[in-house]
Nucleic acid binder design. Structure first.
Lengths: 239, 239
DNA sequence: CAAAAGCAAGAGCACTGCTCTCCTTTTTGA
DNA sequence: TCAAAAAGGAGAGCAGTGCTCTTGCTTTTG
């Protein structure tokens, strides 16, 4: 009525976010695989066909939710990074890992959306690449800033085999200048292993194996991943 | 006609395995989420309702496929274990990891079935527990036999925090007598991290990051996981 | 050899993603 | 100012889904 730039555009934004809110809610009930456009529309008091004015297909709604989830997870990781003191790289690394874990446990269905089984026939569009890179970037940033501060120690595990050294060097050049290639390889692998640890918790695969000390096991392993990237523990033990 | 124990029972077995074969085939096409009983029945030249004589619901068919996949993966891991010489525990460990990876890459949809997003509203029945434990058991067996042979070195990472030490000790008592608790905790965590590494490859999350040296990265990390469990590399480097 | 059990077929229910046509409301441009 | 254009909503319809129920036929069993 009074708004600049048209009431219609504003209404469109509102309906769009209402759809995504409801979709996120239904995600937690039925899961991504059974996310139903009709159910979302019904809950919103609109007819299913009207929903196609906002999202051309079910997969496009999914894509929007995926991007949103990647961004939320990335924000959790980056937030944990900012909050940790730069002088203790290993603790920063563990903080990022813990941030990822906490977000995933609080949003299991959205975590499943981005790190569970990919929907067959659904190819993640390039829009998801940048937000999907935020967590590994946060890990790489810990390594990069440790290098800048002269806090990166030797990376255990010996020299990298040839093709891996080359690819790691390419990643270093593009995303984390100054970081040694073995540390970069460790960052990438740690990312996958971190998701593995978190996924086991979120998907309940530790049931009956580890029940009461999952947080401890996780932290313990996150610390070891940090070591693997050349980030020494708080005080170097005398050997 | 002539068979002992009835031709009917034999026919039932044949039809059951034909259904599972076709379902596995369709799994590779449409994925677990879109596995359709009707499509399976259609391909087999039967009507959909007839299929319910063999599997009371779609989820029961899924369960049968899950158990089968767990067993196949477990067999791959155990086969790799048997083939590796007992005198080199770290190499055995890496061999088990490589066996898991190879099977997963060869059967991505069946891997997704057991280590992807759990189907909402579907609780894995207890039948899946035993086959699901075969891979971690294989890893634990490497540690256990290394202990028996006096080949298990010190486990890095310092002492376990209290609740974790207790749970790890319980696992040791039940499944791997003689293995130190820190090594057992490392085994369990390695299992999750192994699945994380493999999952990233199978689900394509390394796309655009690591392309040509995934095997090298994987082996490198599997070796580090072995170290984390107290399995020393082939020759201890002089420090 | 009749009764019982097993199995296939088909119709039907309530649901899904998606398309198309109709109609109303809002925005836009001359 | 007012008609043309764009946008959105409603409903019917298509082809597909999991699953149930009834109807017959065939095999097994007592």
């Amino acid at each position: 009525m009074t708004a600049i730039q048209g009431a219609r555009e504003r209404a469109r934004r509102e309906v769009t976010t209402a759809i995504m809110d409801e979709a996120r809610r239904r995600l937690a009930v039925d899961g991504a695989a059974k996310l139903s456009l009709r159910a979302v529309a019904r809950e919103l008091g609109m007819v299913s066909s009207a929903l196609y004015r906002y999202f051309p297909s079910r997969d496009d709604l999914l894509t929007a939710l995926i991007v949103e989830a990647y961004d939320a997870l990335g924000e959790a990781a980056e937030g944990a990074l900012e909050a940790a003191p730069r002088s203790a790289p290993a603790e920063r690394w563990v903080a990022v890992c813990a941030g990822v874990r906490a977000w995933a446990l609080a949003h299991p269905h959205e975590f499943a959306l981005i790190h569970g089984t990919p929907v067959p026939g659904y190819a993640a569009p390039p829009d998801t690449n940048a937000p999907g890179g935020r967590v590994p970037f946060a890990l790489a940033r810990v390594a990069r800033e440790a290098v800048e501060d002269g806090l990166l120690g030797p990376v255990p595990g010996g020299p990298l085999p040839e093709p891996l050294a080359r690819e790691a060097a390419a990643l270093v050049a593009e995303h984390a200048p100054g970081v040694p290639a073995p540390a970069m390889a460790a960052v990438v692998a740690s990312w996958a292993q971190l998701v593995g640890l978190v996924g086991f918790e979120v998907f309940g695969q530790f049931t009956g194996v580890i029940e009461r000390s999952r947080a401890e096991l996780f932290t313990h392993q996150a610390r070891r991943l940090a070591e693997g990237a050349g980030l020494p523990p708080r005080q170097v033990p005398p050997h």
